[in-house]
Amino acid sequence: MTVDILGRAGQVRAAGECAPRSARDPVNQPMINNWVEALGDANPIYTSEAAARAAGHPGVVAPPAMIQVWTMAGLHGRRAADDPLQIMTALLDEAGFTSVVATNCEQTYHRYLRVGEHLRMTTALEDVTGPKRTALGDGWFVTTRNVWYSGEEPVAEMRFRVLKFAPGPAAAPAGADAVRPVVSRDTAFFWEGTAAGELRIQRCGACGTLRHPPGPMCPSCGADDPGYVLASGRGTVFSYVVHHHPPVPGRTVPFVVALVELEEGVRMLGGLVGVDPGEVRIGMAVEAALTRVDDGLTLPDWRPAR
């Protein structure tokens, strides 16, 4: 990756709050009326002078949750060039993390706002972390902090977090129509293991030979009372396919199935998730990513090693 995301994030964070954006209009009754109507908020302190005074306010107040409304840029508005979220969004677009989803929004209101107050809002970059593997794809979390001022007084704050991600293949698994294994007395330990969050490899109780897929009798020494060891969960791709056709129950095409060579020396098939099918290579380092389908089935999937 040639884009220095963390380096640029450090500069933006050090620059602190960007220049404030002024609200287009002061806090006003018509906008309040529209908002409470749209949200079905019948609290009379937002619309009735008498009710507001009875509740101890000097007059009608604005709903606190409207705070973002007052400084919205409007239909044709553009974010300022020094807006930290704008800068990080452009940078991550360039790095291939082109999709966005908001993940967190925490607002803090210091006091009620009254009709006639004129607000300004600033934005500062709080944090950038990544890359992270998510269900949506690999991406970066960008956290910003907005502060609204009335005059010089901070009246509200918001911590806002987005995930900028590169859309990955649908993490294929597996639903009610997932194909279920036939579990025999010889193989139950493996499936009990995945359900318990463990990847188990059969180990001969007599000669210690590791074996996968497991079976009832050791082909090396003939012993028939095997145990198991826990796999480290690390391995490399020995071979793989990208399945397109025909449809497979419980899967969305295209999906990757990999034959993984575990560092313990045995091979195991599993779905390879969290990776673009075009990026998979033989020899690629992977790690176990057990996928719980339901109470009865946990599949031994894999994902690229972190």
Binding site: V179, P181, V182, P213, H243, G250
Partner: peptide
Amino acid sequence: GVDASWSYPMGLGT
């Protein structure tokens, strides 16, 4: 069926 259980549930079955 037991043999197939090392591949079909993982999506490899054609």
